[in-house]
Design a protein around this nucleic acid. Structure first.
Lengths: 219, 219
DNA sequence: TTAAAATTTTAGATTTACCTAAAAATTTAT
DNA sequence: ATAAATTTTTAGGTAAATCTAAAATTTTAA
């Protein structure tokens, strides 16, 4: 079955918003897709008839097994292309997201599988997100929010929970990227800011807001 | 300026049909794009207002400088991706055309230029077609139709003038591909079939129809 | 618990790319 | 040169994806 780019984007957005099997609201989708609630309602009806999701008026939406499969395939392609752009074409990891948004809709399954092979069957993309295999199995990254990391524990930045240019600017300035090893030295309860230390450089402070968007692995 | 995939396909088709600055007919376009003449007329009006082409009712269509630039960019991307698929991902040269039809619409200019660099600034694609550079300059391949090749002249297959699976099947069977060195041993005026000889294998006969779709370089 | 607020859906339009059928213009062939 | 054939355009309509405005439903909060 072949779906339009628009439909694929709906499915992907629902997948990303659908935490713990909870259903996704029309408004949340409208915001994520930069469109209006009325448009979302229209589209959900169409996607329902295509059995990609379960939808009841006023009750929100959940992906079916079929829908989830499609979402994972799109994410697989997105992440493989991101890694290709960084690893083979020398792009910076902060500039590949936008290009991968287009490449993820290229349909050839053979291309996806060959690309994966060419990249050596990677397990995660340049942002640290896991890459689903060609059976749709997604490796689970045991990671924790930096704000929840105990003090004095060495950890490695494994994920950035936001793709905006703004966070990238800040992280570049602070010299933090995927793979950066750091530990939390102190937590300030006043504003929940954190004092962290990278490698053996001088410690510095980051906001709670930033910490909440950084994920780390440890032990 | 960003154009829809459909519009890009119209521009590309006009470019390919527009020989020697002659204008292209509505019907020819309809056939090339697998659509109807009425739809073509509609679209030509839109593309005219976007200044991509010159169009007068009943007089056919020609690309403007702007339109030609766009066409060449699309062809550049198409051919770079084809080469990438063959050279880096190990695809057969007969299976890449269809995939490149999708990849040629990826918009990032930086991606195109990086891909070109990654491939070592190639001058032609796996079918032997020249790849335009990032200034839109297209190397001219001096090639001749195999049917017009003088007898007993060693030449090299440089281009296949048809992308169909059918011609590929035949060529695979005959063991002919881009780069194959061959010479014409005899021309039969009865049906214009040709006896050709590849390397030092036994000579065999090909139809005029096939010969007309094979292009070679010699001297 | 019911009124106000927020969310969601419906109704009715718009734009893009396409279609068929019929009219208009051009080309070809007698 | 004019009638027939062909090509091209116009007119009017459809489906996909969007919109605004208004109605329906659900949630929240006094």
């Amino acid at each position: 079955m072949k779906y339009s780019v628009t439909k694929e984007n709906y499915i992907k957005a629902i997948f990303h918003l659908q935490q713990e099997n909870a259903s996704v609201s029309t408004n949340a989708l409208a915001q994520a897709l930069h469109t209006k609630a009325a448009s979302v309602t229209d589209m959900l009806k169409k996607l329902k008839t295509q059995k990609l999701l379960q939808y009841e008026k006023y009750k929100g939406v959940k992906l079916t097994v079929e829908g989830r499969k499609l979402a994972i395939l799109i994410i697989r392609k997105h992440r493989l292309w991101e890694l290709f752009l960084v690893q083979k074409l020398g792009f910076g990891w902060e500039e590949v997201h936008e290009i991968a948004e287009e490449l993820e809709h290229i349909s050839s399954k053979k291309l996806t599988d060959r690309l994966e092979e060419y990249l050596g069957f990677p397990r995660s993309d340049p942002h640290g997100d896991p890459i689903p295999d060609n059976q749709g199995r997604m490796p689970v990254n045991k990671q924790i929010n930096l704000a929840d990391l105990p003090v004095n524990t060495v950890s490695m930045v494994s994920n950035i929970g936001d793709q905006s240019a703004e966070i990238m600017e800040l992280l570049n300035h602070k010299n933090i990227k995927i793979g950066t090893r750091l530990e939390v030295k102190k937590k300030f309860t006043y504003d929940n800011s954190l004092e962290i230390k990278v490698h053996n450089k001088a410690a510095f402070t980051i906001s709670e807001h930033l910490a909440r968007h950084l994920f780390v692995k440890y032990e």
